[in-house]
Write a protein that binds this DNA or RNA. Structure first.
Lengths: 142, 142
DNA sequence: TTTTATTGTAACTGTTGACATTACAACGAA
DNA sequence: TTCGTTGTAATGTCAACAGTTACAATAAAA
């Protein structure tokens, strides 16, 4: 099982916004061209990013921009904006409570699964959009 | 997006095997009763665990047992046995190479996504089946 | 005011994976 | 030979993802 491509698309979107904000109007069509997908996919993801307070979108005239500093946007923020599931793990539904294992498996496992998810999220929170922008510029320039 | 319930079911299976190995023959029917699902689901997951060298299954007569010490089985082993995707993340397929971002997004992101996955897997590798068995026993006994 | 480009949604398609269930051949001990 | 069990195939249902077409609403510009 993999995450959807929304995380990488959303990151791509934000990198485009920061990189091209002074040169182009950033529309869903423009972004779809760079990401190579359908503009409606982009508009949906931009909607999620907007709901999360990460971008601002001008209706009518069009164009997306960051809603806050790229220093203040982490990969975890982006992840949470585009993936709605709270828990990474799907516990099987109805363990048999007549069985000692079925009765205890949740209390033994739940905390551990949370720790695993926290480890992942903690690593995500270390990466800021501004870092990614910087590394991208270093790659493009020389 | 969530992982399938195969991880928690597989863990439940292994806990049952260790807990009941001296009292019962551990068949797919027996396990299905504790987990509350269909025996064929159990047989498929047992097959994955067997391919990974975690359990041994007796055909014909029936019954599953651990193939190695519970000290030597981590949650990461179980996870890798039942989830076939190598990468946690699904990168969008064809970024436009005419665009500077499209050209650089992979090299900027790939390593970071690997780090995130490693953080998760590292946390999984800290948890052994023997720990889980011990905690389960502590819960059942008193 | 009209035109224009754009956004926000809805509707529909196709594909994939998860989970469940029935069925049955193959297996191996008693 | 009988019996319980495993391995596997076939089928069905459901949800999520990804793509596409269509169109009303929006707001700046002509």
């Amino acid at each position: 099982m993999q995450f959807s491509s929304r995380l990488t698309i959303a990151t791509h979107i934000l990198l485009c916004i920061e990189t091209f904000k002074d040169e182009y109007k950033i529309t869903s069509n423009f972004l779809a061209g760079s990401i190579n997908t359908n503009p409606v996919i982009i508009r949906n993801i931009l909607g999620l990013l907007s709901s999360a307070g990460i971008v601002e979108i001008k209706a009518g005239v069009g164009g997306a921009s960051l809603a806050r500093s790229s220093d203040d946007i982490t990969l975890l923020d982006i992840f949470k904006a585009v993936e709605k599931e709270e828990s990474l793990f799907h516990f099987h539904d109805n363990p048999n409570l007549q069985c000692p294992i079925g009765r205890s498996v949740h209390s033994v496992m739940d905390g551990k699964l949370e720790n695993i998810q926290s480890a992942m999220e903690n690593e995500m929170s270390k990466i800021t959009l501004s870092q990614l922008v910087k590394e991208t510029k270093d790659q493009i320039k020389p």
